[in-house]
Design a protein around this nucleic acid. Structure first.
Lengths: 348, 348
DNA sequence: CTGAAAGCGCTTACAG
DNA sequence: CTGAAAGCGCTTACAG
């Protein structure tokens, strides 16, 4: 066994050791290259032995293909994003792409991070985030990196985006809650400058107004559990209490449920219905059992990969259907018609 | 306004346009380089105008510094990891590093992903994960990339690692539960091949045995909510029920609480105490209010950055203290001495 | 099937 | 303070 070299082994080292040109070594690593079967085998054998692996950076410089997909994520605190990140990254890898991740502060400036990211020449950029100005679109355009917004409908119509039908989803949720007897709807907003918030709010409000109901809005300011709690506190301690609350996202709704039951002693869904949007894993936990609108994450990730594969497709926003998931925090029929023994027994 | 070039602008383009050498352009971007103040200003102005930015790949090839930190994460489903990832990435960025993320399947092979990652020549690799063989250590050593295990004590003692005091943390948790009256302890294991699981189990068991108690172990097989539920089902439907359960992680404990209260009608902490480890955000939610052992994530991330800064420090495992967080799922004193009105009122 | 050579976009001694 | 030149580790026409 030879002594381990102190420097990383390069293509030259291998060429020298085998007495062939560097071109031959390079060819062994390209399936489509013209090279003798035996030569390739010998090269690969020695490469494995020496721990040689072509340098992706050097390769990228020539081919112009870095196989890097840059992902900007702004809010890892909201469990929806880790979920998407895991799914996205898992789909990217078999397609031969690596994920370069930049974490931006929620609501903070994304551009410095984006620029740093772009200096690595990602082949594509995906923005997995909340509020972003059109600055990002321009920055990527200048760097000639195709950009996709995920879960955000950008203001610029020529940008590409994959989102779910927030409007329709929130609308069907509203109708479900109205059928359950909601008379005084309220909506807890997260960040007001996000398209998800705006669309969900509008979908909810439009459906409520169609039924003659006025929606009260309470601004939570951020998509966090604590913000949902605070918004619910304000909502429930005011004069006329809502009897149905939609959170702009699950994490807000979960905070609201908590305050309603624990601090205001309300029975859910009897005294108050609560629902969210996203369908994060916690919403399905029996302890929460939150009615929500499910984002079709798998389909959204699939579309993202399709976009990467057939880049030439034109811009625009792709909107996938969302699905209403009815769980225990909303009623199917008005509470007045129910009897008391609907209450869950806590004892075995 | 000049027409936008169809190709990305390079150092040559700028040099040609300004009538200077490429070296001059390059110098403008290096604070320590010898260059006239006026020249630098002019270069930077034109660069901004043309959207020029030095190519990080080309730069990396020469300097040998890619400013990339490769992170392998194996279990984004467990909320502990997104939390760490956000914290780590946020700390890395101001230090001038970008995060290259590889998501490996929990329990799956990590080596192919790691190799791909290494081809980008990260300056450091961080493994944020559960079960990894010493293969990763060898792979990184061959590529000459310093590797750090985060939240995992590697088998090879010469590898570097930052972990928390799982043993001590689990021990103090056990003593707290014993003081609360636990007589029949049980431990829900996640993946048995992880150091976190092994150390927490051992810490819990040792402390229990010191008090003359035998710990029953139930294998959940994975660190997920569903696995925690299933383990609790087996644990509680057997002949002699435990009166205290520690989950190897919060996510397991949360699943166990759920089954205990909802399916077995147990009152927590009166009939059964449950606790976890990690202190993920959900554990602090009032709906869960889970007693747990907090990992010092901030301190762990700080130590990781210190390691990156002063690389020459030798290997070994750095073990940071963990903190017991007592919440509502455990008792401070035995249940027998309590009265019935300790039960929480659910009405206002 | 293989090699010599140019070149990707930069950085960095070395002169001047 | 600036430029010419070598070179980082590869890939890829172009010959042969």
């Amino acid at each position: 066994m030879p002594s381990r070299p102190s420097q990383r082994v390069t293509i030259k080292d291998l060429a020298r050791e085998m007495g062939v040109s560097v071109a031959t070594i390079a060819r062994a690593f390209h399936p489509e290259a013209d090279i003798a079967v035996a030569t390739r085998a010998a090269v690969l054998r020695l490469a494995a032995e020496r721990g040689y692996q072509p340098d992706a950076l050097a390769r990228s410089m020539i081919t112009g293909r870095t196989r890097i997909v840059g992902v900007v994520v702004a809010d890892l605190e909201n469990p929806f994003y880790p979920m998407v990140l895991a799914s996205l990254s898992a789909a990217l890898q078999p397609a031969g792409f690596n994920t370069m991740l930049v974490v931006a502060e929620a609501g903070g400036p994304v551009d410095p991070a984006l620029r740093l990211l772009l200096s690595y020449r990602p082949e594509y950029a995906i923005i997995l985030a909340t509020n972003l100005t059109t600055e990002a679109t321009r920055t990527c355009a200048a760097a000639q990196v195709p950009l996709l917004y995920f879960n955000r409908a950008p203001l610029d119509t020529d940008a590409r985006a994959v989102v779910c039908d927030n409007l329709g989803g929130a609308g069907s949720l509203a109708r479900h809650m109205i059928a359950g007897g909601m008379r005084h709807p309220a909506f807890i907003s997260g960040r007001a400058d996000t398209s998800t918030n705006q669309e969900r709010h509008e979908g909810f409000r439009t459906a409520c107004e169609a039924a003659g109901l006025t929606v009260r809005e309470e601004a939570a300011q951020s998509f966090t559990y604590a913000a949902g709690q605070q918004a619910a506190r304000r909502l429930l301690s005011s004069g006329e209490r809502p009897d149905g609350i939609m959170g702009a996202s699950d994490i807000l709704a979960l905070g609201a449920v908590d305050v309603a039951t624990r601090e205001f002693g309300l029975q859910i869904p009897r005294d108050l219905m609560v629902a969210g949007f996203d369908d994060i894993p916690m919403s399905a936990w029996p302890a929460h059992d939150l009615t929500t609108v499910q984002q079709p994450v798998t389909a959204m990730v699939e579309r993202t990969l399709a976009w990467i594969r057939d880049e030439p497709c034109e811009g625009g926003t792709l909107r996938l259907p969302a699905r209403l998931i009815i769980r225990g925090t909303t009623r199917t029929e008005p509470a007045a018609e129910r009897t008391c023994n609907d209450m869950k027994e806590e004892r075995a």
